[in-house]
Simulated scan of single mutants.
Amino acid sequence: MANDRQTVVLITGCSSGIGLKLAIHLANDTKKQFYVIATMRNLNKKEQLEAAAGDTLNKTLHIRQLDVCSDESVTECLNSIQDKRVDILVLQVKQRHAREFLEAWHSNHNAINKHIDLDAVYQPLRKRTGNDITTNPRNPIQEKDINRKQKKTASLHLEVTTDDVTKPVNNAGIGKIGPIESLSIREMKSIFDTNFFGAVRIIKAVLPDMKRRRSGHIVMMSSVMGLQGVIFNDVYAASKFAMEGFCESLAVQLLKFNIYVSMIEPGPVNTEFEMKLMDEVSHSTFPGTDSETVQFFKDVYLPASRDIFATMGQTPDTIAEATIKVIKMERPVFRYQTNILYTPLTAMKYADDTGNMSIRMFYNLLFNHGTCFKISLSCLRIVTCSWFRSGAVSPN
């Protein structure tokens, strides 16, 4: 139970990455001024957080279940908090649905003989939709199909059926990056359901108490892709643009109640998931996409993306430390870009009111001057030390 002198911080997405690091940093505050409620959708993945928490577990750090895509889960989580009091809400949302399907499928593939263990494999999707899910009777899954697909899990494209619609389940990577033709509308909606509507759902839930107390701080883990669109990240960037617009509008109203809104905007962040993601999509088939676009994606975009991550990528620890700087501000800033190397790229967009400058620059760097682009990144790696690459931009 938090005492009157502690600040109650609720953080979403704490099973790994930025959310986990932020929770640990705050819980280990030497003055013990933070009472951290670290949440995650699946409590079966709490081991890493528990191990990192050490002596702070169940003292300054408490783990709770929270699925931002579920009204019931949000309500249950807030009801478990004393007086439903949340002083600071930090939203670090994560994509999952298709990724969950693959994890469940992999964990059970050894048990496959002549059929799939549907109860285990489809459990995440059944829980998410609330519907019964079976194999499509018009396209039964045979053992030989499973063996073939097992060898190429990155291009897994099984069909599952709910009571109202048959839909494709692609690999997790396709849901975030790749040619737009390979994405179904349902997959696009899934991205928005988490990145936008999931965040809005929890914000709506905490606002009444914050307004009543006339105090609060909402911290949204956004991205530079909420400011600058990036090729082959179309839908993901769109979801971040939506969140930026929502929060920018909301921030004006909430100042009347002494509630601050802050957008943390990292550039590339080096996480294990990001590296696996790029490796995964490099082997994907992207059904419905023309061969020229697939070639551009695999031979131009992916190598450039890897170079950018190697040169400009920050660690989750660095992003967590930057977030804490904003949290501790007496008058928190609205926008905080963490990567000084990426700032000129987002600034360029606003330097030209036609929008042509940034679009043509990115086009030329990727498709016309690839060698120059690689040399520039190599030089940047040489002249900037590790501290400078991982440093956060001062908001002042």
Rank of each mutant, 00 (worst) to 15 (best):
R306F: 11
K325I: 09
T293Q: 09
I308D: 10
S291N: 06
K328E: 11
L277K: 03
M275F: 11
E292D: 12
Q295V: 07
K325W: 13
T323L: 11
A322Y: 06
D279F: 02
T315F: 14
D290K: 05
K298F: 07
T293D: 04
P316H: 15
T271V: 14
T293I: 10
R306V: 12
I308S: 07
E280H: 04
D317N: 15
I319G: 00
F297I: 08
A310F: 11
S284N: 05
I319R: 05
D317C: 12
I327Y: 07
P316T: 14
D307P: 05
E292Y: 08
K325N: 13
V281I: 10
I308K: 09
Y301V: 07
P266A: 09
D279E: 11
E265P: 04
K325M: 13
D299S: 07
K276Q: 15
M275T: 10
T285N: 05
G313A: 10
T293G: 03
P316S: 15
Y301F: 13
S305F: 05
S305H: 04
A320M: 15
E265F: 02
E321D: 15
T315Y: 15
E280Y: 02
L302I: 15
G288P: 04
L302H: 08
T285I: 08
E292R: 07
E292T: 10
I319F: 04
Y301E: 02
P266N: 08
K276C: 05
P316F: 09
Y301M: 06
V300T: 08
V269Q: 02
D290V: 07
V281C: 01
H283W: 02
F297K: 00
I324P: 03
I327G: 02
H283R: 07
V300R: 10
D317M: 11
S305D: 14
F309A: 08
S291Y: 06
Y301P: 00
I308N: 09
V281P: 00
D307R: 15
V294D: 03
T271G: 12
T285H: 01
F273L: 13
D290W: 02
H283A: 04
M278S: 02
G288V: 06
G313W: 06
T318R: 09
P266E: 07
G267Y: 04
D307L: 14
V281N: 00
E280K: 01
T289C: 11
L302W: 09
A320C: 15
E265W: 06
P303D: 12
M278A: 01
T323I: 14
P268Y: 05
P303E: 12
E265V: 06
T271C: 14
D290F: 02
A320Q: 13
E265Q: 12
P316W: 14
G267A: 13
I308L: 13
L302R: 01
S284M: 08
D299E: 14
E272C: 06
T318K: 13
S305P: 01
D317H: 14
Y301Q: 03
N270G: 09
H283N: 04
T318V: 15
M278H: 10
T311S: 11
K298H: 09
K276F: 11
P268I: 01
I324H: 06
E272A: 12
A322R: 01
V281E: 00
I327N: 04
E265C: 03
M329E: 14
